[in-house]
Computed example of a mutant assay.
Amino acid sequence: MTPAKHHRPDDANHLANDEVPSGYQKVETPQGVKIVREGPVSFVRRELAMSPNRQKLWEEHQGTTVLPVARSFADTSVAPESYLDVASVWGQDGPLIVDVGVGHGESTFAGAQAHPEANFLAVEVYRPGLAKLLDRVVTEDVINVRMVEANAPEVLDHMLPAASAQEVWVFFSDPWQKNRYHKRRLIQPKFLDRVARVLVDGGLLRLATDWSHYAAHMRDVAEAHVEFENLYPGRLAGNESPLTAARVQGTDDDNPMPEAQALDTLGGWAPRFDTRPVTSFEAKAQRAGRYIFDLTYRRVDR
């Protein structure tokens, strides 16, 4: 198995001392100038402790199933000179599916088993989750999965070539429920710019969430983006909409809305596609009475 390449073929130069990579900015602080990320990240960093067996497995598969990453400033960053040669890394010319924020990797694993002809890239910063996926991949001899421990926007910016992915999946990213944190939501116009760059013409962006407010936000952002079109316009509108039901029942905040005010006239909700499994996370949301929202957008032709 060929490891990932660190550098773009046409960029052998390192950053000058006064340059800041795309996605970062300089900030003046009482302690001096710091380099910080300028936009939403794909994660909340969590405890990285793993069992000895999984730690050993993780170390054994560095540079192969676990792709090497050139870093810039943070331990989950991706250096601007990074480059992923898809055909050589996977050893096959199949379509690339990028699964962002995979958690324990259930969706990646199910998709890879169902579509051995495709190349699956699991993007996650929670190393124990990736290690759990790695354990399943090795045990079941699933050979079309690679994983990268990194911030997804930087993976899209720096590792993936333009028009290299057939699909990008973002399932159950953090909804950041409080109003003051909405700017931290991953699904924002700039993130969709990144997704549009890496998708082939006609490629798909698949989204899912169990929070109705975030579902409406994701739909608003995607519907307004000129490079995406909804594959299911108008589907499940009005009284058939899960958004209408969630608003009437107040599933997000125990604050039910009057039916006339709750009515979702737009719809556009996608059916659950075949290989997306019911994860433990989703099952917990369903037990709590929340609805599941799927959205699917096509990258319009350039």
Rank of each mutant, 00 (worst) to 15 (best):
S88G: 02
M257T: 10
W90P: 07
D135E: 15
K132F: 06
G91T: 01
L96Q: 00
N239G: 02
V195N: 08
P256Y: 05
E47T: 03
H115L: 10
L121I: 02
T139A: 15
A12E: 15
G103V: 02
V195L: 09
P52L: 01
H61P: 00
S280F: 02
V145R: 01
V20W: 09
V148S: 05
P258Y: 04
D264A: 11
E47R: 09
F281Q: 00
A131V: 04
D210P: 04
E259I: 10
P95N: 10
I292C: 07
G23I: 11
T139Y: 00
L266F: 03
Y181W: 03
D301S: 15
R235K: 14
F293A: 05
D174P: 11
L295P: 04
I292E: 09
R235I: 05
T76I: 14
V145D: 05
L231V: 05
M159E: 02
P161K: 01
R45P: 01
V102F: 10
L231Q: 09
Q188K: 15
V300W: 02
E117A: 13
L160N: 02
E140W: 03
A152N: 08
G267V: 13
F293W: 08
V198P: 02
Y297W: 05
Y291T: 10
E223M: 13
A74V: 02
N17W: 12
I97C: 09
V200E: 14
A4I: 06
N239Y: 07
W176F: 15
S164N: 01
D210S: 08
N13H: 14
V86G: 00
A114F: 10
E28R: 13
Q113I: 13
A245T: 15
W169N: 13
N179D: 13
V155G: 02
E60N: 15
G203Y: 03
P153Y: 07
A70P: 00
V44R: 13
G91H: 02
R235P: 02
A49F: 07
V66A: 08
L263G: 01
V41H: 07
A262P: 08
